[in-house]
């Protein structure tokens, strides 16, 4: 019989798999239904909802693995090499900043603040990649627009995450 410890590990691994699949589906839905305004690259960031929830309910390692797995699998399924670079720049910068903001104690931010910073940094990462790849500094003019939009979509995702991370089901995956 497996010990309690290995049972917990198995549960966690299964949760990571399910969450990665969910993040992929969210990404795919956003790919199918683009945001109907004429500004390049605007998304609600549904996939980040999964990452934020995992960051709060499990640990940063699981959240990072899910984030990277999502990026690489969606690249294999629908992407090009260029889109991989954009996703990685946005995804990694956003993750690192969320981790940093979450660890700040004074002033302490809730999941909403963490999600806002994540969304903004995701957009900043992608703009930096675009400036670098296209060698076109003028794309930087998008930055204020994308930062403002990121703040709003990040708030939305954070507000959705707020009740989810309090759900008792996640206690099953803690020691």
């Amino acid at each position: 019989m497996p010990s309690d410890n290995s049972k917990l590990l198995i549960k966690r691994i299964a949760l990571c798999g399910v969450m990665t699949a969910l993040a992929l589906v969210f990404g795919y839905i956003e790919h199918l239904v683009p945001f109907p305004i004429g500004i390049y690259g605007i998304k609600i960031g549904l996939a980040n909802l999964v990452v934020v929830v995992m960051l709060y309910t499990m640990n940063w390692q699981s959240a990072l693995i899910i984030n990277l797995a999502r990026i690489f699998i969606s690249f294999l399924l629908f992407g090009s090499a260029t889109s991989l670079i954009y996703s990685l720049c946005g995804g990694i910068l956003s993750f690192l900043v969320m981790l940093l903001i979450k660890s700040i104690k004074k002033p302490s931010f809730s999941v909403v603040g963490v999600s806002i910073c994540g969304a903004i940094c995701h957009n900043i990462g992608q703009i930096l990649a675009a400036i670098f790849l296209l060698d076109e500094l003028r794309i930087g003019f998008y930055l204020p627009i994308l930062i403002a939009v990121g703040a709003l979509t990040g708030t939305l995702i954070g507000l959705v995450a707020l009740p989810i991370i309090k759900h008792p089901i996640f206690k099953k995956f803690k020691e």
Partner: peptide, 14 residues
């Protein structure tokens, strides 16, 4: 949502 979140949101937008 805390006060600091609102402050962050409004200052970023501004």
């Amino acid at each position: 949502m805390r006060k600091s979140d609102l402050l962050l949101l409004s200052s970023v937008l501004a």
